[in-house]
């Protein structure tokens, strides 16, 4: 590796990541050819609807498909100069929970009902710090519980997951994820199951902890509001592909892909006047077993025919600089459509 690689290279770099599952019904193309990178201290938001491949991407990063014989992962995942797709199970196991950790959507099913919350955090710590004795690990766990804002951490240490409320449980899971000072934190819909006032608390907590620990965060969500609040950069996924990528402000102010327009048009917003009608994307998301030919979005895209029949035949690739998009519409035409037909209705 070159001398200045530590400063030049992003902390996480994913190249051409592809995940396929072989099932009885056919091959599920869950993720096809994803490219993205992330620097330390930055937050990457991944948005998409169910079945867009956002969760599979995160599980692939953690190597959680390795035990499933029907999953085929290809491409490259570079985490801090280490390639993970070709790494051995043992190597990945050492990183998982240590250098990279994950917060799941549903803390009740992500935590073991049979062990106390405290003992699970202690276990997570001792796996990665074999030399630490029980007392040190326990102090560390209580410290983490206090850090994520759980009142009376010494007492709550001995409680089971079901004795925590939804928000407290999510805090406990964050404490568990952060106990080993991960450099990469993946949060998969961390607030979807929570009420909005609790969601605000948890997002605030993630933001504060990120500042404190300087970790890189991947925030996976279907909620564009959450992304707008937290992310520095955003990936929009559709049908297993990244169809738009850009800095958050850019992406929200000048969204490029018709699907992103559709997502923005579908949501009623509290910060705007009430619209008469929402502008949903017609149809429903495609099956990943049988993706449409050409651009996967073309059956739902109102502009698919505007530029000949390329959209129906040819898969668009992600092109552009910092803000890139996978769409066959020529940039001029796309801007014109956005300015004249889409922006006034957003």
């Amino acid at each position: 590796m070159s001398v200045n690689s530590a400063t030049d290279r992003p902390f996480l770099e994913v190249k051409d990541l592809t995940v396929r599952f072989e099932t009885d019904d056919g091959i599920v193309q869950a993720v096809s050819g994803s490219n993205f990178s992330l620097r330390a201290g930055q937050t990457l938001g991944i948005v998409g609807e169910s079945g867009s491949g956002k969760s599979v991407t995160s599980l692939a990063l953690l190597g959680l498909h390795r035990t499933r014989s029907n999953a085929k992962v290809s491409g490259e995942i570079w985490l801090d100069e280490k390639e993970l797709v070709t790494a051995t199970d043992e190597e990945v196991r050492k990183l998982r929970g240590g250098k990279m950790a994950m917060i799941f959507q549903d803390p009740l099913s992500a935590m073991h009902p049979y062990f106390t919350v405290g003992s699970q955090i202690v276990e997570a710590y001792r796996v990665h710090h074999p030399s630490a004795n029980k007392k040190v690990a326990r102090e560390r766990a209580i410290d983490m519980l206090a850090r994520v804002g759980i009142p009376q951490p010494e007492r709550r240490f001995h409680d089971y997951a079901h004795q925590f409320s939804g928000g407290m449980r999510q805090r406990a899971m964050i404490a568990m994820a952060l106990v080993n000072d991960p450099k990469l934190l993946i949060a998969d819909e961390p607030t979807t199951a929570l009420d909005v006032t609790v969601q605000a608390q948890i997002l605030d907590l993630i933001r504060d902890l990120q500042e404190e620990f300087g970790s890189a965060v991947i925030m996976i969500t279907h909620d564009l509001g959450v992304v707008a609040e937290l992310a520095d950069e955003v990936l929009v996924m559709y049908g297993g592909k990244v169809i738009e990528r850009g800095p958050t402000i850019d992406l929200f102010q000048r969204p490029q892909h018709p699907y992103t327009w559709g997502l923005l048009g579908s949501m009623p917003r509290l910060d705007r006047e009430v619209r008469d009608r929402l502008n949903p994307v017609k149809g429903s998301p495609p099956s990943l077993i049988n993706l449409p030919d050409g651009c996967a979005f073309h059956p739902r895209c109102p502009y698919a025919g505007r530029n000949g029949d390329r959209s129906f035949k040819e898969v668009p690739v992600l092109i552009g600089g910092a803000h890139s998009v996978a769409c066959h519409l020529p940039p001029d035409l796309r801007n014109k459509i956005f300015q004249e037909e889409v922006a006034p209705n957003l």
């Binding site: 969601q199 605000a200 564009l224 509001g225 707008a228 609040e229 992310a231 929200f252 917003r269 910060d271």
Partner: peptide, 23 residues
């Protein structure tokens, strides 16, 4: 507490947010 899908207003939204404590 509702997240606003407008990154430009992010700081303002956070400043104006009333954080309720507890459950």
């Amino acid at each position: 507490a509702v997240p606003v899908p407008d990154p430009v207003r992010r700081d303002r939204a956070q400043r104006e947010r009333v954080l309720l404590t507890g459950d």
